[in-house]
């Protein structure tokens, strides 16, 4: 039997001896106690960070809402209550929308005053494509900027040469999503 074989046998015996060693039971108790003492501190830290992050997010949202009021929105949406039967026969009757109280779909709680140029707007003109559509139970006014090249398709007279290439317009859209009438906002 050479030294290597003896060494292997001795190491195997020592391995069994080594593996039989276990940490004392009191150590587990100590570690669990220490961990439970540290746990509230961790939970407190998590709660503190959560509150801080929530506060920061709330402040950020408030600031964004405060300063996000656009000077001239590209699209503005207003919803009118159901029009009286005698005025819903034709979309042209909607040309006095400015006098109808409007409800806006805007997250701001305080209603914004009507744009000052609204009084100078042209009357609503029924769209050719709206012929035969039922009168909407609820109409929405959408303001957007359109190309003057496309005015003819809405049944409007194209502007003279040299006029701006786009013009602000308002569409009356029914609850089915189909436009009923248009008017230009100077």
């Amino acid at each position: 039997m050479n030294a290597h074989t003896q060494l292997d046998q001795a190491l195997e015996a020592l391995r069994h001896e080594h593996r039989s060693v276990q940490p004392p039971p009191s150590l587990e108790t100590t570690i669990l106690e220490q961990a439970s003492l540290a746990a509230p501190r961790r939970a407190h830290t998590v709660r503190t960070w959560t509150i801080a992050l929530a506060s920061a997010a709330a402040i950020a949202i408030a600031v964004i809402l405060l300063y996000s009021r656009p000077s001239h929105p590209a699209i503005e949406t207003r919803t009118t209550p159901p029009p009286p039967p005698q005025t819903t026969q034709t979309p042209a009757a909607l040309n006095n929308t400015a006098t109808v109280p409007l409800t806006r779909h805007h997250p701001r709680s305080t209603p914004r005053p009507a744009p000052i140029h609204q009084s100078a707007a042209t009357p609503f003109v029924p769209l050719p494509a709206s012929e035969g559509l039922p009168a909407p139970a609820q109409a929405t006014v959408i303001r957007t900027r359109i190309n003057t090249d496309s005015l003819w398709s809405y049944g409007l007279t194209p502007p003279p040469p040299g006029a701006p290439s786009t013009v602000l317009a308002e569409f009356v859209v029914g609850e089915d999503g189909l436009p009923r009438a248009i008017r230009l906002i100077p």
């Binding site: 593996r19 060693v21 276990q22 940490p23 150590l27 587990e28 570690i31 669990l32 961990a35």
Partner: peptide, 15 residues
């Protein structure tokens, strides 16, 4: 969970 981790790994560390 901590106790389970302890039982799994403490013998190696301790030995």
């Amino acid at each position: 969970a901590l106790a389970a981790l302890y039982h799994r790994h403490s013998p190696l560390i301790y030995r």
